[in-house]
Design a protein around this nucleic acid. Structure first.
Lengths: 128, 128
DNA sequence: ACTAATATCAGTAATAGTTACTAGTTTTAA
DNA sequence: TTAAAACTAGTAACTATTACTGATATTAGT
């Protein structure tokens, strides 16, 4: 896969870098349109997929049926607010050790885990 | 929500109880059609959603873009095989304590977590 | 710089999974 | 027995995503 430079892709990447809230493809689309009014949603999807494939960004699936994207590819856990749906980074150590807990009575090979936490974010918690 | 009895729902529930492999709505549909050849896919979805809402079954989202369903509603973790995609129950203790680990530097309220493990299942592991 | 190869684009159509609508059928409480 | 309401099959609609198409932009080699 021989990459060529693309202004649209740069713009998508740059936008994602400014955000810590793990936007969806649609949010990226809305924002990138301020720079490229004619950009296609397909282009956004194609580039997000491409960037995720080459490891520049991370695709995050939190079970809400929509893919979220994160320019921070360092391993970290996420929190999803049940009220407002926002996806927030958690500051906590890696839990690789739970893979061994899981593997104790399992005959296959456990390579890793996906974990996300849910509840109420700071904002929604103080409101209620 | 006042429930009425329904043969179709019974059949769906009964089929799910016989399976430990967390079928998708489509798999349920295919199998229930052997008893109700004219059952509608919509009916299957509606009843799976209803049963999940009242807590009779669990809806499992493992990030493959398809909802899986489980008649075993006791809390337990799942393993997803990267090769064959099968969803397998894990025999391991609950890890409620990781909620506190996650909450240490977080200002909201952590109520729970979703975790699933991935790798190669026993079958696919011995094959390779 | 020029050109050819090809990655990329915008626009649109197609797909998959799921939910919503509709008119007719079952279930069940009175 | 009956009538309200939950349920059904069939179908249309919806959402998120991917695939297709002909035109455009990028880039390596001259």
């Amino acid at each position: 896969m021989n990459l060529k430079h693309s202004k649209q892709r740069d713009c998508i990447m740059e936008f994602l870098s400014t955000r810590k809230d793990h936007p969806t493809a649609d949010t990226v689309y809305m924002n990138v349109r301020q720079t490229f009014p004619n950009i296609s949603l397909g282009t956004v999807y194609r580039n997000l997929t491409l960037l995720a494939d080459i490891g520049e960004i991370a695709r995050i699936r939190v079970g809400d049926g929509v893919d979220h994207f994160d320019a921070d590819t360092s391993p970290h856990y996420h929190f999803i607010c049940k009220e407002c749906g926002s996806v927030i980074d958690l500051d906590m150590e890696d839990m690789a050790y739970i893979n061994e807990t899981a593997g104790k009575h399992f005959d296959g090979c456990i390579e890793g885990h996906f974990t996300y936490f849910y509840g109420k974010c700071g904002n929604c918690f103080t409101k209620s």
